[in-house]
Design a binder for these strands. Structure first.
Lengths: 257, 257
DNA sequence: ACCTGAACACCGTTCAAGT
DNA sequence: ACCTGAACACCGTTCAAGT
């Protein structure tokens, strides 16, 4: 939200222009022109925009270079390779949420905190449907960090909030795991039903997307109306409530013994 | 399980051999040799093995061709491109589970059915940790098909089992959504903590994987023992029970009104 | 200090041609 | 009928060289 607004000068020459123009008469154009040098954050922001706009497949070193007004090789001063770039984009988006004090605030009940957190993560998933699958599937820095709460900061905040409210270590960790599984499953499916992920451009076939024949599937056929309806928000809320109730029950059971 | 055993003749020449040998003296070797022609299924099986062994990044048309004793271009007779290949591999593995009568059997209570199904899907996730993320993230044939129960057959079986047990259409669909979210979240995280996904080969740094500094994270630091412990199976079971209870409660609530 | 040119190894994919 | 050779456009990445 806060972030994601930093293309460099429009310079119509480096977008859509043939990347291999034979004429070297344009040499003067590639001179400084008063452009401030790149930095890692600017590279990540450009990359995030590219993924938002055209999907992860379109994020190549060469295309990102062009968008930033630079050759692909220049990016290697700020990024150790394409994988580092992808990880940086994920970190950028996750940290953006962490920067939101409304969400992170560790006051109120732990239930409120988890509610704010869950809806905060849902918001970034819906805002960046092409990036969320990366958040979900790129391997985190440590194997015990779990997407989508995959930063040390979020894991620390999460655990300390629960501890502050009387959770045992074991129950706090168990809650972290249950909560992340919940978020990942619901949001990845919600986001992917939005039509993210694949393909250079999502071009509908003239006939709609590859007509499926439901004649051999009577249940699917009779429920296809219901199946296509969208209750994501309600279902997310209901499942979240159920999870919080479960954790609350475990919390009180542990207290009593 | 049933599947996944069909490399073609060992023929030491097409594995690890330089793909661009200048000498054409080996022309005779590439002659028939009594080899049966390829078919789509064999291609998919070879692809699945390659992904299992070396990860999705190593699945290239050229490498798969070599494994099957053929040039890359020959594969285009059986698949329409790399995306089709990936989709076919996903379908192969998902259908393998569907072929297991123990799992699919629609007798017994719906709770038993969902238990068998959940543990069946968990088994294929653990058997194919490199393939499961593909099952989770490749866009399904229709937007209302939800990974990991992403085949028409599984969706049909699921819904008809619940209907047979007195579920309303709406509750059956809601259950399908809740159940798939549950499976996806838990299994994707379990499998990825196993160290799947990235990298050409998973090479440990000599020092272990990039030492993380936990000094600024007191909670993580004090719980790092617990965080590294593995309770996946128990947590999966517990969360599954909770979900089944929730669905059962909704079922009886709907009945009463 | 920051960026580029040129090169390398490797991709997916097409198509005319071989057997 | 099934596969290959040759080619094209496009990758990530390295490194010596330019300014």
């Amino acid at each position: 939200m806060v972030v994601m607004n930093a293309t460099r000068q429009p310079d119509p020459n480096d977008r859509d222009a043939p990347q291999r123009l034979g004429t070297s008469s344009s040499a003067a154009l590639s001179a400084p022109l008063g452009r401030q040098p790149l930095d890692r954050r600017t590279v990540m922001i450009g990359g995030a925009q590219l993924v938002d706009e055209e999907g992860p497949r379109s994020l190549t070193m060469r295309r990102l270079g062009a968008r930033l007004g630079v050759q692909a090789m220049a990016l290697y001063h700020y990024v150790s390779g394409r994988d580092d770039l992808l990880d940086g984009i994920v970190e950028l988006v996750v940290d953006d949420l962490y920067g939101d004090p409304e969400v992170r605030m560790e006051s109120g009940s732990w239930q409120d905190y988890l509610q704010r957190l869950a809806h905060g993560v849902r918001r970034i998933a819906l805002d960046h449907p092409q990036i969320f699958p990366l958040i979900a599937t790129r391997p985190p820095a440590a194997p015990w960090l779990r997407p989508p709460l995959r930063s040390l900061r979020w894991a620390e905040s999460f655990l300390s909030m629960l501890k502050k409210n009387g959770f045992s270590d074991a129950l706090a960790v168990e809650s972290y795991r249950a909560f992340t599984s919940f978020l990942l499953g619901h949001l990845l499916l919600e986001v992917s039903s939005l039509g993210a992920d694949i393909g250079p451009v999502e071009q509908e076939d003239p006939e709609g997307p590859t007509r499926i024949d439901l004649n051999d599937y009577p249940m699917l056929n009779s429920m296809r109306g219901l199946l296509s309806e969208d209750f994501s928000e309600d279902e997310f809320g209901a499942a979240l409530e159920a999870l919080l109730d479960r954790l609350d029950a475990e919390f009180h059971r542990a207290r009593r013994s």
